[in-house]
Design a protein around this nucleic acid. Structure first.
Ligand code: FES
Ligand code: FES
Lengths: 141, 141
DNA sequence: TACATACCTGACTAAAATGGTCAAGTATAG
DNA sequence: CTATACTTGACCATTTTAGTCAGGTATGTA
């Protein structure tokens, strides 16, 4: 079970963005430099974040990205969903009634993995960007 | 974030084993047939489980595997550790003081991922094989 | 208007991880 | 002696990941 870089970077970049997003949009180049993330990769990530309306963009000189919601309205769930960082613990298809082994009933451990998935998701639903900003400030004292 | 088949199979196989392990050892062939897992793959998995002393083996005809501890002493943590299904949320090396970006300090989201890792692991530490057997019985009523 | 900045898009790819298979054993009950 | 079942290690196809690269397009500023 590991977190992918895409998901990690998405959150990292958004925290960075939120910290510097006062009036002016923040350019990806700045985020790239501050966080040490490839610019090209960031562009891929932000196009996804934009499609899910987590950020807004303005083009041209002095352009960049801005959050399109308040930090407390952006949960980790939303971010991960936008960049396709999905939690997947079961093997079988969710909607189907068949088990992962192809049999007619769900397998012997299916419920366990379902429980695990909920357990993990609950973490993502609790945490908002605002929480991250706060705890980040505390660490700097 | 997804669970690998190796981890999923390991747990599945052990639950199966625990259910049929009364007096006689259970052969991998039986588990393979009942759970629809490739026999060759199961062998790989069980060699790891054996190395961590979660199961014991007897060779020859009528041979097979037996749990080497009581079901309530075997936590998911132990199983996952045995088969290298490790939870990894941070990018940086745990022991090093450097951040994932190569900088001298831990990155802006490091603590978050650490928290996530603990959150997930706490689930694995709570669940024992016995719990799984119980909830499996309940489902059969 | 020219130009630099910065978003935008899609194709491409090297490397790693995953989920196995295959082959050739060895030990033991019956 | 022979069938069963554990043991070991090499091998491999596919998928995923983590990017790079090459071209755009929009826009503020000089
Ligand atoms: S994981 Fe859903 S049936 Fe096995
Ligand atoms: S994840 Fe540990 S420093 Fe970034």
């Amino acid at each position: 079970m590991k977190l992918t870089s895409r998901g990690r970077y998405a959150v990292m970049a958004l925290v960075d963005l939120a910290r510097f997003d006062n009036v002016n949009p923040v350019s990806l180049r700045d985020i790239s430099l501050r966080q040490g993330i490839s610019l090209d990769y960031l562009e891929q990530i932000f196009s996804k974040l934009k499609k899910d309306q987590i950020v807004k963009s303005t083009r041209g000189t002095q352009g960049g990205y801005v959050l399109s919601k308040k930090p407390n309205e952006i949960k980790l769930t939303n971010i991960f969903q936008a960049v396709d960082e999905k939690v997947k613990t079961v093997q079988c298809k969710k909607d189907s009634k068949k088990g992962c082994n192809g049999k007619a009933t769900k397998c012997i451990t299916h419920n366990l993995w379902d429980e695990l998935e909920s357990h993990i998701n609950s973490f993502f639903e609790k945490k908002s960007l605002e929480d991250l900003l706060k705890s980040n400030k505390e660490n700097r004292l």
